[in-house]
Design a protein around this nucleic acid. Structure first.
Lengths: 139, 139
DNA sequence: CCCTAACGTTAGTGCGTCCAATGTTAGGCT
DNA sequence: AGCCTAACATTGGACGCACTAACGTTAGGG
């Protein structure tokens, strides 16, 4: 069975997931929080629908995650004057700090996950994964 | 964010997971079933504890998965005469057939998942993943 | 002979992904 | 203008997988 890439992938991903939930969990966060904050940092404010497209998170799950981030003061929902259907989600100052904090944790997690690989191998891996992702993300 | 391997890994793994659950789900199975049947084919009969070690499935989850496989007639639990604590889990004839059927599906899923990669690249990928897995599986 | 460890089982948690249904608002078509 | 369809935010639910805690039973070593 250990010859099948999907098995390997799921096993490695399971370890990765454990590292991520441990690392973020120790800070009282989870994967969705980081994904959202990071997307807001690099992509700017956006409606929830746009945020969902950017992060790959389902709209229904986004609601809950944003509720958590909002009541923690990291994020703000404001009505879009140009389109009353939309909430414009943006970072607060605290949210920007939080994003930086979680970013550092993410880097540490990265390092632990990829510990056995050289820098060149890490790039190889990300290149291959990226191509797989691009292929499948295109539906 | 798309520069972080753990993000890539989780995204790719998410697509892989979707393909797997779709592929197996269409046959009324799920990942645990295939993992277990395959492990029984390649590793022979074993106690549940040993099976858990071989597949990486938690003992507690194994119970449920084996219940499903057993009531479908694919697997048999028999008391180990040498150790009354153990159940020896073994394949039935139907189970062997089922394993072959799911194996074919697994191969098709593989192919779909790795479609954009050449044979050499697939080996590169599995090599890298395997090294990550070995590193982290060693606790 | 007792203590500890291994075994199988039950129950419950958490995260991430996904689907279905609802009410609201925008925008295109006629 | 009015209608219809699509987009948006939200709720409530489901499932797969990983993981923990607790329990009773049995083996085996000190």
């Amino acid at each position: 069975m250990d010859h099948l890439p999907s098995w390997l992938l799921s096993q490695v991903s399971s370890h990765a997931h454990r590292l991520v939930t441990e690392g973020f969990g120790a800070a009282g966060a989870r994967g969705y929080h980081y994904r959202l904050l990071d997307s807001l940092v690099t992509g700017g404010p956006a409606s929830q629908a746009a945020l969902g497209r950017r992060t790959g998170i389902y709209l229904s799950d986004l609601v809950g995650a944003l509720n958590e981030l909002e009541s923690a003061g990291f994020v703000r929902r404001s009505a879009d004057p140009a389109d009353k259907r939309r909430n414009v989600v943006s970072l607060t100052a605290a949210g920007r700090e939080r994003a930086a904090e979680l970013g550092e944790r993410a880097a540490a997690i990265q390092d632990e996950l990829l510990a056995p690989l050289s820098a060149a191998e890490r790039e190889q891996l990300t290149g291959l994964l990226r191509r797989l992702l691009d292929h499948h993300a295109a539906r």
